[in-house]
Amino acid sequence: MGRIRSYTRLMSDITIRRATADDSPRLTRLVRTSGAYRGDYAAMVEGYQVGGPYIEHHPVYVAVDDDGGRVLGFYALLVDEAELDLAFVADAAQGLGIGRLLMEHMTEQARAAGLGSVRVVAHPPAEEFYLRTGAIRTGTVRPTGRIHWERPELRYDVA
Protein backbone atom coordinates (compact mmCIF):
# COMPACT_ATOMS: atom_id res chain seq x y z
CA MET A 1 0.00 0.00 0.00
CA GLY A 2 2.83 2.42 0.78
CA ARG A 3 4.29 1.89 -2.65
CA ILE A 4 1.04 2.79 -4.38
CA ARG A 5 0.61 5.81 -2.11
CA SER A 6 4.03 7.10 -3.14
CA TYR A 7 3.10 6.77 -6.82
CA THR A 8 -0.21 8.54 -6.19
CA ARG A 9 1.60 11.40 -4.48
CA LEU A 10 3.87 11.69 -7.53
CA MET A 11 1.12 11.92 -10.16
CA SER A 12 1.64 15.68 -10.38
CA ASP A 13 5.42 15.21 -10.52
CA ILE A 14 5.71 13.02 -13.61
CA THR A 15 7.91 13.93 -16.55
CA ILE A 16 7.57 12.41 -19.98
CA ARG A 17 10.88 12.71 -21.78
CA ARG A 18 12.60 11.24 -24.79
CA ALA A 19 14.31 7.99 -23.83
CA THR A 20 18.04 7.54 -24.36
CA ALA A 21 20.15 4.45 -24.93
CA ASP A 22 21.01 4.60 -21.21
CA ASP A 23 17.35 3.78 -20.46
CA SER A 24 17.62 0.44 -22.29
CA PRO A 25 18.16 -1.79 -19.20
CA ARG A 26 15.27 -0.22 -17.27
CA LEU A 27 12.86 -0.38 -20.22
CA THR A 28 13.87 -3.96 -20.96
CA ARG A 29 13.29 -4.90 -17.30
CA LEU A 30 9.86 -3.24 -17.35
CA VAL A 31 8.86 -5.29 -20.42
CA ARG A 32 10.22 -8.60 -19.14
CA THR A 33 8.67 -8.28 -15.67
CA SER A 34 5.26 -7.02 -16.77
CA GLY A 35 2.47 -8.84 -14.96
CA ALA A 36 0.40 -8.68 -18.16
CA TYR A 37 2.80 -11.15 -19.78
CA ARG A 38 2.66 -14.06 -17.36
CA GLY A 39 1.35 -17.51 -18.15
CA ASP A 40 0.40 -18.08 -21.79
CA TYR A 41 1.66 -14.62 -22.79
CA ALA A 42 5.17 -15.03 -21.34
CA ALA A 43 6.57 -16.17 -24.70
CA MET A 44 5.94 -12.69 -26.13
CA VAL A 45 8.49 -11.01 -23.87
CA GLU A 46 10.90 -13.84 -23.15
CA GLY A 47 14.37 -12.58 -24.06
CA TYR A 48 12.93 -9.29 -25.34
CA GLN A 49 15.25 -6.31 -25.28
CA VAL A 50 14.54 -2.63 -25.80
CA GLY A 51 17.98 -1.94 -27.19
CA GLY A 52 19.91 1.31 -27.36
CA PRO A 53 19.92 1.42 -31.19
CA TYR A 54 16.13 0.93 -31.22
CA ILE A 55 15.69 3.78 -28.73
CA GLU A 56 17.96 6.07 -30.72
CA HIS A 57 16.23 5.27 -34.04
CA HIS A 58 12.59 5.54 -32.97
CA PRO A 59 10.67 8.06 -30.87
CA VAL A 60 10.61 6.31 -27.50
CA TYR A 61 9.26 8.32 -24.57
CA VAL A 62 9.51 7.41 -20.92
CA ALA A 63 7.42 8.59 -17.96
CA VAL A 64 9.56 9.06 -14.86
CA ASP A 65 8.86 10.47 -11.43
CA ASP A 66 10.67 13.70 -10.68
CA ASP A 67 11.86 12.55 -7.26
CA GLY A 68 13.97 9.54 -8.11
CA GLY A 69 13.75 9.03 -11.82
CA ARG A 70 11.79 5.79 -11.42
CA VAL A 71 10.49 4.54 -14.74
CA LEU A 72 6.70 4.46 -14.51
CA GLY A 73 6.04 3.58 -18.15
CA PHE A 74 7.05 4.17 -21.74
CA TYR A 75 5.93 3.93 -25.35
CA ALA A 76 7.58 3.63 -28.76
CA LEU A 77 6.06 5.15 -31.89
CA LEU A 78 7.13 3.93 -35.32
CA VAL A 79 6.57 7.09 -37.34
CA ASP A 80 7.31 5.57 -40.76
CA GLU A 81 4.76 2.81 -40.15
CA ALA A 82 2.33 5.04 -38.19
CA GLU A 83 2.23 2.36 -35.50
CA LEU A 84 2.48 2.20 -31.73
CA ASP A 85 5.11 -0.51 -31.30
CA LEU A 86 5.45 -0.71 -27.51
CA ALA A 87 3.50 0.66 -24.55
CA PHE A 88 4.08 -0.45 -20.96
CA VAL A 89 3.25 0.86 -17.51
CA ALA A 90 5.01 -0.51 -14.43
CA ASP A 91 2.77 -2.95 -12.55
CA ALA A 92 2.86 -0.84 -9.35
CA ALA A 93 1.86 2.29 -11.31
CA GLN A 94 -1.11 0.86 -13.21
CA GLY A 95 -4.52 2.39 -12.70
CA LEU A 96 -3.09 5.80 -11.80
CA GLY A 97 -3.48 7.53 -15.18
CA ILE A 98 0.10 7.12 -16.39
CA GLY A 99 -0.93 5.04 -19.41
CA ARG A 100 -3.50 7.69 -20.35
CA LEU A 101 -0.82 10.40 -20.08
CA LEU A 102 1.47 8.36 -22.31
CA MET A 103 -1.26 7.83 -24.94
CA GLU A 104 -2.12 11.54 -24.92
CA HIS A 105 1.56 12.32 -25.40
CA MET A 106 1.82 9.71 -28.17
CA THR A 107 -1.11 11.19 -30.09
CA GLU A 108 0.42 14.67 -29.78
CA GLN A 109 3.74 13.37 -31.11
CA ALA A 110 1.98 11.54 -33.96
CA ARG A 111 0.05 14.67 -34.90
CA ALA A 112 3.26 16.75 -34.82
CA ALA A 113 4.89 14.18 -37.13
CA GLY A 114 2.04 14.67 -39.63
CA LEU A 115 0.32 11.34 -39.05
CA GLY A 116 -3.44 11.07 -39.46
CA SER A 117 -3.77 7.90 -37.42
CA VAL A 118 -1.71 5.40 -35.46
CA ARG A 119 -2.20 1.64 -35.70
CA VAL A 120 -2.03 -0.52 -32.58
CA VAL A 121 -1.76 -4.30 -32.53
CA ALA A 122 -2.65 -4.87 -28.91
CA HIS A 123 -1.88 -7.45 -26.30
CA PRO A 124 -5.39 -8.95 -25.81
CA PRO A 125 -5.75 -7.94 -22.12
CA ALA A 126 -4.81 -4.34 -23.05
CA GLU A 127 -7.59 -3.85 -25.60
CA GLU A 128 -9.97 -2.22 -23.09
CA PHE A 129 -7.27 0.26 -22.06
CA TYR A 130 -6.77 1.37 -25.67
CA LEU A 131 -10.52 1.69 -26.20
CA ARG A 132 -10.86 3.80 -23.03
CA THR A 133 -8.08 6.11 -24.23
CA GLY A 134 -9.67 6.82 -27.60
CA ALA A 135 -8.66 4.03 -29.96
CA ILE A 136 -11.23 2.30 -32.13
CA ARG A 137 -11.15 -1.40 -33.00
CA THR A 138 -10.50 -2.12 -36.67
CA GLY A 139 -10.06 -5.91 -36.69
CA THR A 140 -7.78 -8.69 -35.53
CA VAL A 141 -4.30 -9.88 -36.42
CA ARG A 142 -3.82 -13.59 -36.94
CA PRO A 143 -1.30 -15.61 -34.89
CA THR A 144 2.29 -15.72 -36.16
CA GLY A 145 5.59 -17.10 -34.85
CA ARG A 146 5.65 -17.47 -31.07
CA ILE A 147 2.28 -15.75 -30.80
CA HIS A 148 -0.46 -18.38 -30.87
CA TRP A 149 -3.52 -16.16 -30.40
CA GLU A 150 -5.33 -13.47 -32.33
CA ARG A 151 -4.59 -9.90 -31.29
CA PRO A 152 -6.93 -6.94 -31.51
CA GLU A 153 -6.05 -4.31 -34.09
CA LEU A 154 -7.00 -0.74 -33.19
CA ARG A 155 -6.45 2.79 -34.45
CA TYR A 156 -6.04 6.20 -32.86
CA ASP A 157 -7.24 9.00 -35.14
CA VAL A 158 -4.91 11.91 -34.43
CA ALA A 159 -5.44 14.35 -37.31
Rank of each mutant, 00 (worst) to 15 (best):
A113S: 15
Q94F: 00
L101H: 04
A110D: 11
E56F: 11
G97F: 01
G116Q: 14
I55W: 11
A87K: 00
A76G: 10
H123N: 14
T107F: 03
G97V: 05
E83A: 09
R70P: 00
V60H: 06
Q94Y: 05
A63G: 13
P59A: 10
F88H: 00
V118R: 06
L77R: 06
L84S: 03
L102D: 02
L101R: 15
L86Q: 13
A76H: 02
F129A: 11
M106H: 01
Y54S: 14
V118A: 06
H58M: 15
L96S: 00
D66K: 15
L78Y: 04
Q109E: 15
R100C: 01
F129P: 03
F129L: 13
D91Y: 02
L84F: 05
F129E: 04
F129H: 09
Y61P: 04
L115N: 06
V121W: 04
H57L: 14
E108R: 15
V60W: 08
L72A: 07
L115T: 06
E81I: 00
L78H: 07
E81P: 01
V71E: 03
A113C: 15
P59S: 12
A82Y: 11
E83G: 00
P53E: 15
G69I: 08
E83H: 05
A76C: 14
A63E: 07
G73L: 02
V60E: 08
A63M: 11
E127W: 13
L115K: 06
A93C: 01
V79I: 14
V64R: 09
D65K: 08
P59V: 11
R100I: 01
E127Q: 15
R119V: 10
A76T: 13
A63F: 06
D85G: 09
V64G: 09
G95P: 02
R111M: 08
F74V: 05
P59K: 13
P59H: 13
V64D: 06
P59T: 12
L96G: 01
A110L: 09
L102C: 01
A87H: 05
G69R: 11
E104D: 10
D80I: 00
L77H: 07
E83S: 12
P59G: 12
I55H: 07
R100V: 03
G69W: 09
A122K: 07
G95F: 01
R111A: 14
H58D: 14
H105R: 07
A126Q: 09
G69E: 10
A126V: 11
A76M: 12
R119Y: 08
